[in-house]
Amino acid sequence: MKTAIEIENLAHNYGLVKALKPLNMSIESGTLFGFIGPDGAGKTTLFRILTSLLLPTQGKAKVLGLDVVNDFRKLRPLLGYMPGRFSLYQDLTVEENLNFFAKLFKTSIEENYHLIKDIYDQIAPFKNRLAGKLSGGMKQKLALSCALIHKPDLLFLDEPTTGVDVVSRAEFWEMLRKLKNHGITIVVSTPYMDEAALCDKVALIQKGKILQTDSPQNIMENFSKPLFSVKSINRNSLSKDIETFGKTDSFYWFGDSIHWIGSDDKDADLLRIYLQQKKHEDLEIEKINASIEDCFMDLMKGNHE
């Protein structure tokens, strides 16, 4: 496997703010790689450095074997980049935008149409509509088409699914899978932890620090803490009561139940007794396998402390 991105001791400060702490990692060619982390974690900063838009404060990064600082002229044409903010010309139509970006990269829509066909077919009915008047999901599809039009070797997508409805998000990830099959390395960032499971490999990033890099399967399998789902009819006092329970390691709302981590499997029985004393009815406590979100919640909690 070839290496698409190699990062060595890379860091970036905005004045006194350490946006990115010294970072070492590599990303293999042909993978769908996800950076998962909350807003302000440093994802955009990292992407801007890797796309040569920002100079790192320290360290080195090689993308497609080219240095992001010195070889930026050679590097830029090989990259496809979709910034986090919708960055197309809102006063141009769908078709005009696509044409413009094709010409910018000295290619034509026809030449690489096979790449964007699946995506573009969905927005083609609106090709004469101004880009600014498209819905959120449509905008992202158009932006993706524009980023792909020159058949880049490496695609950077900065939070492509933020502000997009659930159905469009699922469609979007489906497209990324297909693109991967065309041999394009895709690096994507997202604040939605559930999307991590859709990547080949993920890196959890928080406060400018990478907490873990692995495949989602490995991350989930390596989670060893006792994790339980707790449900009660009396939702309002549930979290308060769990908080006062002495054996609680951590807990958080997960949909309509609370995910609770103790220090031992046996603690769950103690929790049941404790909650019954607190007059919780229809109590459901069951051991569950960690989802990727559970793993991240746990990792992020560790980083906070």
Partner: peptide
């Protein structure tokens, strides 16, 4: 933000 895309182009 379109400048961002223009810059990452030839």
């Amino acid at each position: 933000g379109t400048m961002e895309i223009l810059l990452v182009s030839p």
